[in-house]
Amino acid sequence: MKYPSAFITGLLVLTPLSFLYALSTGSVDIGWNEIWQVIIGKEHGLNHDLIVDLRLPRATSAFLTGAMLAMAGALMQVLLRNPLADPYILGVSGGAAVAALSAMIAGLGGLWVTGSAFIGALFSTFLVFGLAHRQGSWTSTRLLLTGVIVAAGWGALISFILSVAPEANLRGMLFWLMGDLSHTDSSLLPLIILIVCFFICMPFARDLNILARGELQASALGVSVFSLRLNVYFIASILTASAVTLAGSIGFIGLIVPHIVRLITGSDNRTLLPASILMGGCFLTIADTLARTIISPQQLPVGVITAMLGVPFFLFLLQKNKQYS
């Protein structure tokens, strides 16, 4: 199975379809024709408000979050040369969570929580980098171990905060931790971040293929390994930080989407990165729509749906493919 251009074309078709699905489905089902009326500006009633004020921002956030997580996951897997890497492996989401939960305990809300999450994520990024980079040696193993240990530290702090948090705050905190797309702020900044990161990475995509062979090997083929790894590390961290800020920590997407794409199109990062972005976006948009409708009016954490859809699909592909044998 190696048809990268056909696969990417398919995803480009799926993208508007996933949005249509997200816009049309919910407490009130809206037909595609009515959505069209809203788009061309002929409809200003309830449907307009429902779509423009509620469903479209949420679908956009879902798409962007999925896209950023999938891209960050693909980058982390190459950076650490480890197929088990996901965007959260180096503790970015843990740092964000500790900061966000602390803000919630302090009784702050809205932008304070969001801002704290972003700052916590960046703090964790620099902390891991500083610790892993101390003596100039910056091997994948050292980075990985440092990140995993720092993440474990954040995990302990999260448990601590949850155990001392007042009862009234707990539900909000748990939902934040499981990933929650219902409080969407503006998606403009994340959109810009995603586009900028994508265009910074794409010229390096072939260098990334070579980096996956090892640092010395890449160096011998003319790759400036140090600056490439530095760039990849910070880009992946910024993407993860933005995603976590937008939606809390939604598991699974960043780990599994790059692998699904690899199984279908191969490991060339020139096709892997754009395909992961599109697939991550569509996947989370669809999963989030299911999460808010499947047992409505109750909403499920979207991570439940991503795992319930993703696990069987990934296992099926893995069975059929020899790449990881």
């Binding site: 190696k2 197929p83 191969g266």
Partner: peptide
Amino acid sequence: DTQAFPGT
């Protein structure tokens, strides 16, 4: 030579 993500 080791390859983290094998290609063709």
